[in-house]
Simulated assay, not measured.
Amino acid sequence: MATDTAPDRILMFGAEWCGDCRRSKALLDRQGVEYDYVDLEAVDDGADRAYAVSGRTQIPVVVFPDGTFFVEPTDAELAAKLG
């Protein structure tokens, strides 16, 4: 069963007002990666879920099916992880 810490596909927690979130989301979109997006402005428990994964309040939090995650990844880090 998929969870926030081991999703079936990439799971990103972010918000529209967050520049790093928009940048990471754009990279995923450009690479044609399928992912689930949790908008912290629209999902009541989104921030709590992101914090439960990362232990931090910074966003974006990008969680991978292998259970690893990045907080505020650079484009280079994210692209390298995507292979």
Rank of each mutant, 00 (worst) to 15 (best):
K81W: 13
C18S: 12
V38W: 02
E41S: 10
W17I: 04
C21F: 05
V63C: 00
V61W: 06
L28Q: 04
T3D: 11
V71H: 01
T5V: 12
L11W: 08
A42G: 00
G14H: 05
V62C: 08
D8W: 08
V33H: 09
T68P: 05
P7N: 04
L27F: 08
I10G: 01
D4C: 08
G55M: 05
P60H: 10
D29S: 11
Y35R: 04
G14W: 05
R23M: 14
G19R: 00
D48T: 08
T3Y: 07
L11Y: 08
Q58C: 10
V63S: 06
D29W: 06
P65D: 12
V43K: 04
R23H: 09
A15N: 03
S54I: 09
Q31Y: 15
A42Y: 00
D75H: 12
M1I: 10
A6Q: 15
G67P: 07
G83M: 13
A76Q: 14
L27A: 07
A50V: 02
V62H: 07
F64T: 02
A79C: 10
Y51R: 15
F13V: 02
A76Y: 11
V62F: 13
Q31N: 12
D44F: 08
T3I: 06
R23D: 08
L78A: 06
D66V: 08
R49K: 11
T57E: 09
L40I: 14
